[in-house]
Nucleic acid binder design. Structure first.
Ligand code: ZN
Ligand code: ZN
Ligand code: ZN
Ligand code: ZN
Lengths: 169, 169
DNA sequence: TTTGCAAATGATAATCATTCTCATTAAATT
DNA sequence: AATTTAATGAGAATGATTATCATTTGCAAA
């Protein structure tokens, strides 16, 4: 496993720092929202799936399947790993969750927000900043038009060194 | 494996189409360039590494480690899979190659071009368009400034339906 | 050129995220 | 309630990636 100079595994998400240079968007989600998500994917509403979606929402963003499984188990012993994994995949296929991969690490998931945002990640400490930039989105559409593509989604991940990691040399 | 409506595996790179809506940037690379790449990573220049870089350059872009290994073997029976794999990882770490992942499929690699570009991929047929957009790059820098980040690199992948796939319904 | 050492190599085994299988259970529709 | 079809859970299978280690090689000092 790659480590940075502090011995921290690169790319591992740290607990949310509360520093002002970090930004997370929070959103409200109701059980009705979740049921609609499931139905839109032509899947059946089950207690397992409701629990999985609730855990996805309530817990830290950018969670791995394994981590999510552990959270889910605390609410219901009997939910299997395969169910969590399978459902995450179904959700990702329908863009109801966003799958983020970094290096060869396990995929991380977050509920696709109602209001789109992109990510900027510090490669030293793993800190993540969420941002919205209308101009970038507009220029993406222009590129698509230019080649006649109809865009369905995109991945924009910025990587760099955060202020704190620049300071600590 | 996920398939689209034509039974083609989604996300698999097809041979370069020659249609006008597709765009690839080609670049010249010399053996000296390759030696410099290796030295910049503090690695030693070996025949194996030179062959691997030459194969990366000469063959289709966005190649998997396995595919590259097969190409390399045609030039030298004795080069092992581990050598190819390891070197690709070293190159990716130093951003000398760009690693692209889609779904759970094996990573695909391309020589990081001298002139940066990003990708737009058709989710139906796998066609890839490479594009350069100065405005997007500038706005990315603005976002970074806003949060005090020093950008090192980024991933921008647009996904959509290409003109040809829109037509064929 | 010979020698010494650190790095690279190649074969193979190990790891581990992801996917599959299948017997059982549950959701939705009538 | 009965029928139909999808979902579930346990575990095995898959397959990409990584690690290990004995051997070889690059490189530079003597
Ligand atoms: Zn965006
Ligand atoms: Zn940082
Ligand atoms: Zn770019
Ligand atoms: Zn297409």
């Amino acid at each position: 496993m790659q480590k940075n100079k502090n011995g921290i595994e690169k790319g591992v998400l740290l607990p949310r720092p509360s520093s002002n240079e970090t930004q997370f968007f929070d959103e409200e989600w109701s059980d009705e929202d979740f049921k609609n998500i499931i139905r839109k994917l032509n899947l059946k509403v089950t207690p397992q799936r409701m629990i999985i979606l609730n855990c996805l929402h309530k817990n830290r963003k950018h969670i791995t399947a394994q981590e999510l499984f552990e959270k889910v188990q605390k609410l219901n012993e009997d939910i299997g790993f395969a169910t969590v994994y399978r459902f995450l995949k179904d959700l990702a296929l329908g863009h109801a969750v966003t799958e983020v991969r970094m290096g060869g690490m396990p995929a991380r998931y977050e509920l696709t927000p109602k209001k789109h945002h992109d990510h900027m990640t510090c490669t030293e400490c793993g800190r993540i900043v969420e941002f919205q930039n209308k101009s970038i989105e507009q220029h993406q559409e222009k590129v698509a038009e230019q080649f006649g593509f109809k865009l369905t989604h995109h991945v924009l991940e910025l990587y760099g060194i955060c202020p704190s990691c620049q300071t600590h040399e």
